[in-house]
Computed example of a mutant assay.
Amino acid sequence: MKTVLITGSSKGIGLETALAFGRAGYKVFATMRNPEKATDLENIVLTENLNISLYKLDVNNDASVSKCFKTILADHTIDVLVNNAGIERHGSVEELAMLDFKAIMETNYFGVLRTTKSLLPQMRKKKNGCIINVASVSGHISNSPLGAYAASKFALEAISEALAGEVKPFNIRVAIVEPGIINTQMASDISVDDISLYPHSKRMAGLFSASLKTPTPPTLVADKILEIAESNTWKLRHPVGPDAEPFIQWRKSLTDEEWVDWSAVNDDEWYEAVQNTFGLDAR
């Protein structure tokens, strides 16, 4: 029986990914900071009799990662690691607290390094494995008020690319999943209209709200993650969602200066550009 360890499994993409693998016949180690709060996942596991076990894991904490992996690896080998745990904080560079910048990097970047480094020796020894890192379209596009979040995803993209080259000789596959705007609590939180000295927070809130009117479910991302694990693909990057590739290609079509200018235009021009480019009324 194949095995998978998934971080951040209590809700959203992580929860759906745990269910997707469980339904596909995997032994699933669903990890999260507070397993006692994962009642939705527990109920589905019991109802469907899935081979999913919940474990306490805080990717921000060295001791927590060490304890969790030591417990699991004592009796099991892991075929697939899905680094899904992530957080989001939004705000302008001036207004966002330093603690928020640090928290985002701690979870979205250093957390992935902690779990990956804990599992690599086993995968390298058996010369087999698959590591799937959930990044974001924001790993290609940086704009306010998501600069801090984008920085963590840019970093994740970079380290994943380096890792892929390091471990391929050991038959370990690395894949980066890049969701667009997905119907999760994280996306809904961004849609909150924060009061800011800068107009970008309100603009982005409108963009997310408009996109979520025709929501893309987290099951779409979960299905892609399972597909990558089940395949023999060595493809590195996998945009997911109807807006993911269009967003990435849109950014590529602009020079850096054009991108900066687009972010700096007045509200009317910005909203009109979003309407013309994506058909979304973000007002």
Rank of each mutant, 00 (worst) to 15 (best):
V112Q: 04
A282R: 03
E230G: 13
A205C: 12
S138P: 03
A175S: 12
P199Q: 04
L254D: 07
V112K: 06
E166R: 09
R203P: 08
A158V: 02
S53N: 12
E48H: 09
S209W: 00
I13A: 07
K11G: 05
M32A: 08
V80T: 12
W270R: 14
E166G: 06
F21A: 01
E258W: 05
N61D: 12
A85S: 11
I248K: 10
V221E: 06
S253P: 09
P35N: 09
D40V: 15
A210C: 12
E245M: 15
R33W: 05
V134C: 05
I159Y: 08
A30L: 07
M1P: 03
D268N: 09
G206T: 12
D62K: 15
T115A: 11
V260P: 00
E88M: 15
L50F: 00
G180L: 09
E42T: 14
C130M: 11
M186S: 13
T17G: 05
L57A: 03
A158S: 13
L119H: 07
M186Q: 13
L254V: 06
G206Y: 09
V137E: 02
R173D: 00
N61T: 11
D267N: 14
A18C: 09
E94W: 06
K168I: 10
S142M: 15
G241P: 05
S144Y: 06
T31C: 14
L96W: 04
N108F: 08
T233N: 07
V137I: 15
D75G: 04
E272C: 05
D193V: 15
K56W: 01
I131V: 14
T277A: 12
S188E: 15
E95V: 07
A151R: 03
K235P: 01
A282E: 00
S196C: 10
N60H: 02
G147Q: 10
L220W: 05
D223A: 14
N183V: 12
